[in-house]
Design a protein around this nucleic acid. Structure first.
Length: 810
RNA sequence: GCGGAUAUGUUGGAAUUGGCAGACAAGAUGGACUUAGAAUCCAUUGGAUAACACCGUGCAGGUUCAAAUCCUGUUAUCCGCACCA
C-alpha cells in the first residue's frame, strides 16, 4: 500500500466531511472529552514526544468513537513563553514572528499525523482573542480577593541587569555571562491558591489519576497539623513560630529567623550589625534546594537579641540561619536541638545548649532523638506521650494567649508576575493616588505592543515602551503607569481546556452552557512533569471559577494518564546540546504515519517510555503488509462454504473474540503495546487457519472484517483504505467496534499446571465444570503425578480454577 | 537534601494483580525458495547439562502451599522541587 497517497486521500475525505469536528447537535450519544496537553511551539517541528503523546491517545479517542461516544478532541498552542523571547534576544527575530511560524509548521505536521483533532476549536494563547480572557481571569480573581501584591525575591544577574528564570541559573551563576546571581526583592502579583489548599487536597480522592501523581500533589500541598507559638522579644516585637512538635517546647534553647524575615534587621543589635549584614548578603546567594539540604553545613549568625519562651519564661537568643525558609510557615522556628537533627547540628556548631525533654520509651535516649517518646523536664506535662503532650500544650498555649493549634501547608501562593515581554500583560494600572487599579473589563485586552526592545538592560521590555506604559487611571483619570510585567504562562494554560468548548466567543471567555455540555475533561493525557504545577493550577482555576458561579463542577480532569518520556538512543533525555535528538520526520516519510504511530504504540510501555531505538519499526511495516495481503486474499474468496463449523473453526472464533475482549480492555487502559500484540496474535491465528486446504469461508470473511475494525483506531488511514477495498461503505470509523460474543469465549476444557509440593510436574487438560474434589481425583490418576505421590498422603489440594492444581503431600 | 518512580532473556517489553516467568516482537542460529537476498516462508532460541536433577525477575533477608508481584533492609538509575513549559 502506498501509505503517503493513502494518508492524503483519507485526510482530505475526513476534512471534507468535517468528520473530526465534534457534533454539537448530537444529544443522544454520550460526550467524551479527550484532551492532550497542548503544544508549546518552541522548536519549529514536532518531536517524538509530541507524536508519542498524541498518536496513541488519538487511537484511544478513535476507539471510543467507534464504541459510540461523541468524542471531542481539540488541539491548540501554549504560545507565550521564555524560549521565544530568548531566541529573540539571540537572533533579533520577534517572538510573535517566530512563534507564528512555528505554529504554522506544527499545525501542518499535526494534520499530517492524521489525528482526529477538531481544528474548529483551535486555541492559541498568544492571540488577542485569547489573552484578553486570560486578563479577564486575572480581574475576576482580583475581584474575588484571590490576587494580591507582595514582595518576593527574583534571581537577579547584576551584570546582565536582568531577572533570570531558575532554568537560566546554573550553579548559582547566570547561564549567559557566568556572574553570580543574587536574590532581589520586587513587588509582584500572587494568586491565593493557598485559600484552596484544603479542598485541593481533599478532592484528590475523587479523581481517577495515577496514584503517584496524587501522592506528589499531596506532598506538594504538604498539610501539617501543629501549633503556632508567640515568643515576645525584649524589643517588644513578637516572633511567631510554627511547629509540629510543641511537645518539645520546654527544650527550646534558641529561636531562628530566616535571613529574609522582616524582623531580621530590626532585632539586630548595633554591635552585631556588620556580621548580620554579611550573613544576609551571603544567604541571598544560595538557592532553596541547597538551603534545604540536610547535609549542607549549617550556617547562621546571632542577632544580639533575646526573646522569651512563653511556657517557662526562659530568655533564649535569636539567630538567623538559612536553613529556615521565609516561604514556609512563619519564616521562624523554635529550635530544640535535643529533638531535631538540624537544630542539633546548629547548636553543636555554635555552642548552644541542648536540653532533653523527650525520653525514649524503654531504652537509652540518644540525642538528637527525633521520634515520639515520654515528656520529661517539662513541669506539669511530664510523663505524657507525644500525642497527649501536643494536644495539652497547644491548648495551654492558647489559654495563655500565645498562639495555639494551627494547620499549616507547604503550598505557597502562586507568583504570577514575570519581568518579561512575551506573555499576557497584567491588566493593572498604577496610579500615584489610587495605587494599583485593575483595568476595567470593557478596556480589555491590554494589548501587547509589537515594537519593543528585548535586549536586557535592567528594565522589563514593556517598562521601556512609553506608549504602552502611559495610561490613565480608571478611577481618578490622572496620568498613571501600566504594570510592566506579564503573566506566568501557567495562567494561560490554567483555563485553555474551558476555552476549547467555546473557542470563538467574543463576548465572554466561554458560554457556561457550552462548558456544561463538554466539561469536565474525561481523559487528560500529558507528561508527569506537570504533576505539581500545571495540574494544580488548573484545578485551582476551576474551583475559583466555580465559586464565582461560572462553572458547575469541582474538578477539570476526571481521568489523567501520563505518557512516559522517549529518551535519546543513549538513554539520556533528548537535547540539542547532547546531540541525541531523533526526529520523527524521516521515519514518517519512509514508513508513513500509521506505521510510525503503531510502532510507538507497540515498542514502549506507554506510561514508561524509554530510550529510542528503531529496531522494530520494520517489523511493524511488515505486519501491516501481512494484514493487507491476508485480508485482500480472504476478500477475494468465493462465497462457497467448504467446511462446517468444527473444532478448528471454534478455535478461530475463540481467537477472534479473545482478541476483541483484550484489545478493548487494553485500549481503555492505555496499554497499547499489548493491544497491538493481540492484533498480531489474531493475524497469526487467521493465517494459520487460512493455510488449511479446506476452510469455512464465511467465518474467515467475518473475522477479516472484524480485523479491519479492530485495527482501525491504531492504523486509521490503512484501515479506511482496506475497508473501502473490501467493499465497505462510508468511513470505517462510522462502524461500531466489534463486541465479543461471550459464548465463544467459553471453552469446554482448560489446561492446568499440576504441581506437587509447589513444584511443577506436568500440564493437564481438564474439563470445565468439575468440582475441586473431582479435579483432585483426576489429577491423582495421572501417571506422572502418581509417581511423585506414591506412598505418600495428600494432605492438601489447592485448586485455582482454570489455571493450577497444587498437591501438598508428605 | 526532600518528594515521586523504575530495575524481568542479547534487546523492546508481557504476566489475568499472589497461581505455568519470558506473551507479542526484535536480534541471532539453522533450513527452504532463488542467479542473488537487507525479500518471503519454516524451525530453534532464559542459563546450565549428554540428558535429567537444577538455577533464574538489581542485591540480602522474610511472609506464604505458592512471590517478578506482599513486607523489611539495601544498591543503582531516572523525574520533579515552585521563573522551562
Amino acid at each position: 500500500m502506498d501509505m503517503k497517497s493513502v494518508e492524503e486521500k483519507w485526510q482530505a475525505r475526513w476534512e471534507k466531511a468535517k468528520f473530526n469536528e465534534f457534533d454539537r447537535k448530537d444529544e443522544k450519544k454520550e460526550k467524551l472529552y479527550v484532551l492532550e496537553m497542548f503544544s508549546y511551539p518552541s522548536g519549529a517541528k514536532l518531536h517524538i514526544g509530541h507524536w508519542y503523546n498524541y498518536g496513541p491517545t488519538d487511537s484511544y479517542a478513535r476507539f471510543k468513537r467507534m464504541k459510540g461516544y461523541n468524542v471531542f478532541q481539540p488541539m491548540g498552542f501554549d504560545a507565550f513563553g521564555l524560549p521565544a523571547e530568548n531566541y529573540a534576544i539571540k537572533t533579533g527575530v520577534h517572538p510573535k514572528d517566530s512563534t507564528e511560524k512555528n505554529i504554522e509548521t506544527m499545525e501542518r505536521q499535526l494534520k499530517a499525523m492524521g489525528a482526529m483533532f477538531d481544528w474548529s476549536a483551535e486555541v492559541k494563547t498568544c492571540e488577542e482573542d485569547y489573552y484578553k480572557w486570560t486578563q479577564w481571569m486575572f480581574l475576576q480573581l482580583y475581584k474575588k480577593g484571590l490576587a494580591y501584591r507582595k514582595e518576593a525575591p527574583v534571581n537577579w544577574c547584576p551584570s546582565c541587569q536582568t531577572v533570570l528564570a531558575n532554568e537560566q541559573v546554573v550553579d548559582n551563576c547566570c547561564e549567559r555571562c557566568g556572574s553570580q546571581v543574587v536574590r532581589k526583592n520586587l513587588t509582584q502579583w500572587f494568586f491565593k491558591i493557598t485559600a484552596y489548599a484544603e479542598e485541593l487536597l481533599q478532592d484528590l480522592d475523587t479523581l481517577d489519576w495515577p496514584e503517584k501523581t496524587k501522592t506528589m500533589q499531596r506532598n506538594w500541598i504538604g498539610k501539617s497539623t501543629g501549633c503556632e507559638i508567640e515568643f515576645d522579644c525584649e524589643s517588644g516585637d513578637k516572633i511567631r513560630v510554627f511547629t509540629t512538635r510543641c511537645d518539645t517546647v520546654f527544650g527550646v534553647t534558641y529561636v531562628v529567623l530566616a535571613p529574609e524575615h522582616p524582623l531580621a534587621r530590626k532585632l539586630t543589635t548595633p554591635d552585631r550589625a556588620a556580621d548580620v549584614e554579611a550573613y544576609i548578603e551571603y544567604a541571598s546567594k544560595a538557592n532553596e534546594i541547597d538551603r534545604l539540604s540536610t547535609t549542607r553545613e549549617k550556617t547562621g549568625v546571632f542577632t544580639g537579641s533575646y526573646c522569651v519562651n512563653p511556657v517557662n519564661g526562659e530568655r533564649v537568643p535569636v539567630y538567623l540561619a538559612d536553613y529556615v525558609l521565609c516561604s514556609y510557615g512563619t519564616g521562624a522556628v523554635m529550635a530544640v536541638p535535643a529533638h531535631d537533627e538540624r537544630d542539633f547540628e546548629f547548636a553543636k556548631k555554635y555552642n548552644l545548649p541542648v536540653r532533653k525533654v523527650i525520653e525514649k520509651k524503654g531504652g537509652e535516649t540518644e540525642l538528637p532523638f527525633c521520634e515520639d517518646g515520654i515528656v520529661v523536664n517539662s513541669v506539669r506535662f511530664d510523663g505524657l506521650s507525644g500525642e497527649e503532650a501536643r494536644a495539652e500544650i497547644a491548648t495551654y498555649i492558647g489559654k495563655i494567649g500565645k498562639g495555639g493549634k494551627k494547620v499549616n501547608y507547604r503550598l505557597r501562593d502562586w507568583l504570577v508576575s514575570r519581568q518579561r515581554y512575551w506573555g499576557a500583560p497584567i491588566p493593572v494600572v498604577h496610579c500615584p493616588d489610587c495605587g494599583a487599579v485593575p483595568v476595567p473589563e470593557s478596556d480589555l485586552p491590554v494589548r501587547l505592543p509589537y515594537d519593543v526592545e528585548f535586549k536586557p538592560d535592567g528594565k522589563s521590555p514593556l517598562a521601556k515602551h512609553e506608549k504602552f506604559m502611559n495610561a490613565v487611571c480608571p478611577v481618578c483619570g490622572k496620568a498613571a503607569q501600566r504594570d510592566p510585567d506579564t503573566l506566568d504562562t501557567f495562567v494561560c494554560s490554567s483555563w485553555y481546556y474551558l476555552r476549547y468548548a467555546d473557542a470563538h466567543n467574543d463576548k465572554a471567555p466561554f458560554d457556561p452552557a457550552a462548558v456544561d455540555r463538554l466539561l469536565p475533561v474525561d481523559t487528560y493525557v500529558g507528561g508527569a512533569e506537570h504533576a505539581c504545577m500545571h495540574l494544580l493550577y488548573a484545578r485551582f482555576f476551576t474551583k475559583a471559577l466555580r465559586d464565582m458561579g461560572y462553572l458547575h463542577f469541582d474538578e477539570p480532569f476526571q481521568r489523567l494518564v501520563h505518557q512516559g518520556v522517549i529518551l535519546g538512543p543513549d538513554g539520556n533525555r533528548m537535547s540539542k546540546s547532547k546531540g541525541n535528538v531523533v526526529s520523527p520526520d524521516e521515519y514518517v516519510s519512509a514508513y508513513g504515519s500509521d506505521v510510525f504511530r503503531l510502532y510507538l504504540m507497540f515498542g514502549f510501555s506507554y506510561t514508561e517510555g524509554g530510550p529510542w531505538s528503531d529496531d522494530g519499526i520494520k517489523a511493524i511495516a511488515k505486519f501491516l503488509d501481512r494484514v493487507e495481503k491476508t485480508v485482500l486474499k480472504i476478500h477475494a474468496y468465493g462465497e462457497t462454504e467448504h467446511r462446517p463449523f468444527g473444532a478448528e473453526e471454534k478455535a478461530l472464533d475463540y481467537a477472534r473474540n479473545y482478541a476483541i475482549q483484550r484489545i478493548s480492555r487494553d485500549l481503555d487502559a492505555f496499554s497499547f503495546n499489548t493491544a497491538v500484540a493481540r492484533l498480531m496474535e489474531l493475524l497469526n491465528a487467521v493465517c494459520k487457519y487460512d493455510a488449511k486446504e479446506e476452510k469455512n469461508v464465511s467465518l474467515l470473511k467475518s473475522v477479516a472484517k472484524d480485523f479491519i475494525l479492530l485495527i482501525a483506531p491504531c492504523a486509521p488511514h490503512f484501515a479506511e483504505e482496506l475497508w473501502e477495498q473490501t467493499g465497505g461503505t462510508g468511513f470505517v470509523f462510522e462502524q461500531p467496534y466489534p463486541e465479543e460474543n461471550p459464548a465463544a469465549l467459553v471453552l469446554d476444557e482448560a489446561e492446568y499446571a499440576v504441581q506437587v509440593n509447589s513444584r511443577m510436574v506436568c500440564r493437564a487438560t481438564i474439563a470445565n465444570g468439575l468440582s475441586d474434589d473431582e479435579i483432585r481425583d483426576f489429577v491423582c490418576s495421572i501417571p506422572e503425578i502418581q509417581a511423585k505421590t506414591d506412598g505418600k498422603t495428600v494432605k492438601k489440594c489447592i485448586v485455582v480454577k482454570g489455571r493450577l492444581v497444587n498437591l501438598i503431600v508428605g
